[in-house]
Design a protein around this nucleic acid. Sequence first.
DNA 1: ACTTTTTGTGACGTCGCGTAAAAAATTGAC
DNA 2: GTCAATTTTTTACGCGACGTCACAAAAAGT
Lengths: 255, 255
Amino acid sequence: MVELSRKQREIERRTAEILRVSKPILVREGFHALSMDRVAADMEYAKGTIYNHFPHKEEIVLALAFESMELRRKLFEHAVAYPRSTRFRMMAIGTACEFYTRHCIEDFVIEQWVRNANVWDKSTQKRQELIRQCEASCMAIVSSVIHHGIAVSELPRSDALPPEEMVFGLWAINFGSQILMASSPSLSALGVHDPIRSIRVHCCTLLNGFDWAPHMPVENYLTTADQMNTELFPQFHILREKHFQMTNVATLAST
Amino acid sequence: MVELSRKQREIERRTAEILRVSKPILVREGFHALSMDRVAADMEYAKGTIYNHFPHKEEIVLALAFESMELRRKLFEHAVAYPRSTRFRMMAIGTACEFYTRHCIEDFVIEQWVRNANVWDKSTQKRQELIRQCEASCMAIVSSVIHHGIAVSELPRSDALPPEEMVFGLWAINFGSQILMASSPSLSALGVHDPIRSIRVHCCTLLNGFDWAPHMPVENYLTTADQMNTELFPQFHILREKHFQMTNVATLAST
DNA sequence: ACTTTTTGTGACGTCGCGTAAAAAATTGAC
DNA sequence: GTCAATTTTTTACGCGACGTCACAAAAAGT
C-alpha cells in the first residue's frame, strides 16, 4: 500500500511536471507549438509516456485551464471575505477580476481555452465536470453576495432580474471587456483609451442601477476601488514574479 | 483589357466559391476539419490551385470572418437609420445585435475567429487592415449615435466616460454575454435562464445610468425592444433560410 | 503555328498525431 | 536471490495535413 502510494505520488509528480512544461509553451508559443513530441522531448521522456498521463494535448490544455480557474476561484474567495457591507464585497470581486487579468495574465489567457469548442468537445467528461464545478463555485461566490445583499435589504429584490442574472451582467461586462482588451489589436485606435477604468464605471453604473446601497457617484467608486486594490492585494508586486505566483496567491487566499 | 477583366472575374468567382465551400465545413465541423485538401477535393481542383487564392487556411477563415463582419456592419447601418430619437436608435443597434446572434448564428460563430491569436497572427496585413476598418466602421456607427445624442442634449456629456468608452461598455456587455451564451455549456445550470432578456435589462440599466433621455423603466424598455424587433426585421422568418441570408439582408440594409 | 507567359497539377518532404508491439523495469512468490 | 507475471516505457509505424516545387496544360501574344 505504501508502495502503491509512492508510485501514485511519483505519477502525480510527473503529471504536474508535464503541466509545468506545457504552460509556457502554450502561453508564449501558442496552441500549435504545444505538441506531445515537444513536451516529451522537453521532459526527456518518450512520447508514449506522456500519453499515459493525458490522452491528447487538448486534455493538457484543459488541465492547465482548470488550474487557472482554481486560481481565480481562490481570488474570489479572498475577495468575498472583505469585511464590509455587501456592495463593497461585490466591488471586491471586481477588484479580484482586475487583479487576475493584470497580474495573472497567463492564467487569464489559458482560462479562455475552455471556451474553444474543439478543445472542449475532445476532452474527457471527468475534466469537463471539474471545470463546470469550478465555474459553478465562482458563480456561487458572487451570487451569495447578491443574496446576502437582498437578505439585509441593501439591495432590493428585483422582479425584472433574478440574482443569478445580475451576476451574469457583471460577469459579461468584465469578461467581455477583458476579451476585447486582450484580442482587439487596436482598442485605442477605436477611441477606447482606458478600458479598465471603463469597466469600473460600467460596473458602478449597473450596481447603482440595481439600487444597491450605498449609492455611489462614479468618482467615489473609482477612488474606493483603488483603495480596495491595495488593501486586498498588498503583495501584488511580489505576485508579479511568475515563480511565486501560485504559492503566494494560495497563501493569500487561505489566510 | 476585356480579356484581363474576364480572367479577373473568373478568379474572383472561384475565390468566392472557395469561401462558399469552406463556410459550412468551418461552421459545422470545426477548424480542424477545414483542410486545404478537403476544400480542393470538394471543389474538384488541385490543392495548388487553392493555394493560388489563399496562402493558408487561416486566410480563408479570416476572409469568411470579414464577410460576417460586413454583414454585421450592414445590420448596424440598417438599425441606425431607425427614424426616432437617439436613445431609440441606440436600442435599435442592440436589436441588430440580437438579430445577428439569433438569425445569423453561423456568422456570429465565424466572426469570433478574428480574436484567435494564432489565426490573426498568421494572416496577411491586407486582410487585417480590412478587418480593422470594418470594426472601426461598426464602432463609428455606434458612437455617432452617442455624439448625436450629446449634440441634441438627449444625453449629457460625461466627464467620467467619453462617448467611445460608452460604446465599449455596451459592446462588452453584448459581446461578453453572447460569448458566454455560446460557449458556456450550462448557463441555465448556473441559474441564468433568460440571458437575452438579461442583456436587454443590463443595456437599459446602463443607458438609464448615462441619463440618456427618455428615461425608461425596464418593463417599458423590454416591450419597446420587442416592437422594434419586428419593425426593423420583419422578414426574419425568411432570413432563417440560410440560402437567402446574405442577399436578403443585403437588400434589407440597402433600402 | 510557334513562343512566351500564365495558370493548374499532384507528388513530395516534413511534421504531428495516436497506436501497438517490443523492451525494460517493477513486483511478488518461492 | 531468481524467475515469472505484471506494469510501465520506449520505439517504430501508419495516417493525414501542410506547404512547395518541378512539370504539364492552357492562354496570350506574335
